[in-house]
Design a protein around this nucleic acid. Structure first.
Lengths: 111, 111
DNA sequence: AATATATATCGCAATATTACGATTAATATC
DNA sequence: GATATTAATCGTAATATTGCGATATATATT
C-alpha cells in the first residue's frame, strides 16, 4: 500500500472500470469537449483551443486523458489531429454507468 | 486563475454539475459503497469498514465526499450513523449523466 | 533549406486526492 | 462517573490533477 495511490487491486473489475470512466468525466473541460464532439461530430485540437478557456497545452492534456480511457480517438491529418467520439468506448462507458444506476431504489426511508 | 484549481467559472452550470457527479464516482471505493447501499438499502459506517479494504478514517472520508455531492445521506443513531442512498440526488445524478450520453452518435467515421 | 503551422510533451507550481494513525467528540452502557 | 463504542476530524505523507509557458517533433509550404 502506497499512500496517495488508489488501492484498485482490491476492487472488482467492474468497480474499477466504472470509476475509471467516471474519473475521466470528472472535469468540466472534458464534458465540454465531449459535448462539442457530439455536436460537431469531429474537430481538431485547435478548434477546441479556440472554444475552451484553456491553454493549448491544457487542452492537449485533457484530450490525452479522454483518449487514454477510450472515450475519444484521434487521427493524424498532416500537422493536425482530428478527434471524434470513439463509439465503442462511448457505448461501453454508457453501459458501465447505466449499470450502476440500474439498481432499483428502496421505497423505504433511510433508517 | 490559480494553478491547480479547476477553472469552473468558465463552464456552464450543466457541465460543472455533470463533472461534479462524475468526479464523486471516480473512485472504486465509492462505487463499492454505493453498490453496497443499493443492495442493503442502508448501513452504518462500521459495516463499510468491515466490507472495504480501507481504514475507518478513509471510509469516513469517502462517505463525506458522497454525502457532500448529494448521492447519499446519513442519519445519526446513537453513536452510529446510518447511511443510505439519497434518492433525490441519486436521480439527479442519473439525469445529468444520462443527459450527456443521450446525444445520438454520428454514423460517420472519424475524419 | 527556410519558414510556418499544429500539437504532444516537458518542466514547473499550486492544489487536490488518497491512504492511514492518532485524536476528538458524542453516545451508550455499567 | 468510568468505560466502551462509533465515527468524524486532524495531521501527515505520497501521489495525482490542473494550469500554463516553453520546447520538441512532425508536417506543410515556399
Amino acid at each position: 500500500m502506497i499512500m496517495g495511490l488508489t488501492k484498485t487491486e482490491h476492487f472488482s473489475k467492474n468497480q474499477n472500470q466504472v470509476a475509471a470512466y467516471a474519473k475521466a468525466l470528472g472535469h468540466p473541460a472534458r464534458i465540454a469537449i465531449l459535448e462539442y464532439l457530439l455536436q460537431k461530430k469531429a474537430c481538431i485540437c485547435g478548434d477546441l483551443v479556440d472554444e475552451l478557456p484553456l491553454a493549448q497545452a491544457t487542452v492537449s492534456q485533457h484530450l490525452k486523458e479522454l483518449k487514454a480511457v477510450g472515450l475519444i480517438k484521434g487521427e493524424i491529418e498532416g500537422t493536425s489531429v482530428c478527434y471524434c467520439i470513439n463509439e465503442k468506448g462511448w457505448e461501453e462507458a454508457k453501459d458501465f454507468l447505466l449499470g450502476l444506476f440500474a439498481s432499483p431504489l428502496s421505497d423505504k426511508s433511510c433508517c
